[in-house]
């Protein structure tokens, strides 16, 4: 069964939609004959340009939200669109902070369940979703049984983004209805943590550190190695929780999904929630002093050793190569 219409939440990013929205637009094209997107913010025109390139024919623009959090107004606008234009067959939502908020609110508004942590979408009779469970060792396949639209929250890097060569999408205003007290939270200020070098989820080399580094100051070794390899430094949740590095460094279930050419895990045990965020890497190198650490089960090269010895030696060796 080919679907007729799929909507994609094109969350606005730095210029155009966030990368995962492009992955979803690409996948939506293969599922349905008509792909439309929903966006918000101050630059719907650039979102419509890029979304068109990836196959959207139309972009519904919720408009500038000022200091409002997107969850309530964007879900409200989508619910109004469903009432006015009819429901799409499916709604694909990026697994981002704001995407999850929109999905949760919309699910309650439309009284439709939401399937989260989706890593695959298969049109097979009806639309089936795939989810990685047990740390990625198993694939679970699920489907909706009730009336649509299905709401799917999809993890980054589940699909490759490929442009279709389409022209800019038509922009249609879709102002949010008044959400009353549900929309009472306001953003007072934004804080951006400066990072140099490539972005963690786009870098071709990622070097991550975990609790095995034993002290916050040793994270400098991770940064130095990442820098030498023109990569990005990452982290396990344990050291993010411990306050050694900001949350934006976290790789895994609740952090970033990365798929670099090589992922170097240093002093990371390889808990299931970490593995789901990096298991798709092309090559994995692990350094851990415990030869039974689960990280070795996914490693192409595993060094059973002490990070305090191996990392400085590795840094010296790379520097010596110039």
């Amino acid at each position: 069964m080919a679907m007729e219409k799929v909507w994609v939440l094109a969350e606005p990013g730095d210029s155009g939609p966030v990368p995962v929205a492009l992955e979803l637009l690409t996948q939506a094209r293969s599922l349905a004959s008509s792909v439309e997107a929903i966006t918000w913010g101050t630059d719907a025109a650039s979102v419509a340009g890029v979304a068109g390139e990836y196959g959207a024919s139309r972009v519904y623009d919720v408009g500038d939200l000022g200091g409002e959090l997107p969850g309530a107004p964007v879900a409200g606008a989508i619910a109004s669109l469903v009432t006015a234009n009819g429901a799409p067959d499916a709604l694909l939502i990026p697994a981002t902070y704001d995407g999850r908020d929109v999905a949760g609110r919309l699910s309650a508004k439309l009284d439709r369940p939401v399937l989260t942590n989706v890593t695959g979408l298969v049109a097979d009779g009806d639309l089936k979703t795939q989810h990685l469970v047990f740390g990625g060792s198993h694939v679970l396949t699920a489907r909706f049984t009730g009336e649509g639209p299905g709401i799917f929250v999809v993890r980054a890097k589940s699909f490759a983004a490929e442009p279709s060569g389409g022209g800019p999408a038509e922009v249609v205003a879709a102002p949010p209805p008044d959400a009353g007290s549900a929309n009472a939270a306001r953003i007072l200020a934004r804080h951006v943590e400066e990072r140099s070098g490539p972005k963690l989820d786009e870098a071709s080399v990622v070097v991550s550190g975990g609790r095995g580094l034993t002290a916050a100051e040793n994270y400098a070794l991770i940064e130095e190695l990442a820098n030498l390899l023109h990569g990005a430094p990452g982290a396990s949740r344990a050291i993010v929780d411990a306050g050694w590095v900001p949350y934006s460094y976290q790789v895994g279930q609740t952090g970033k999904t990365v798929k670099p050419t090589v992922y170097v895990a240093c002093g990371i045990s390889g808990a299931t929630q970490h593995l789901v965020g990096m298991k798709g890497s092309k090559n994995i190198v692990a350094i851990n002093k415990d030869q039974d650490a689960p990280i070795f089960s996914v490693a192409d090269l595993g060094i059973v050793g002490d990070v305090h010895k191996v990392l400085p030696a590795l840094i010296d060796a790379l520097k010596a190569r110039g």
């Binding site: 939270a185 007072l188 934004r190 943590e193 949350y247 934006s248």
Partner: peptide, 9 residues
């Protein structure tokens, strides 16, 4: 994604 927001509600 990039840091944190101060939010009041």
């Amino acid at each position: 994604e990039a840091g944190y927001d101060e939010v009041e509600s």
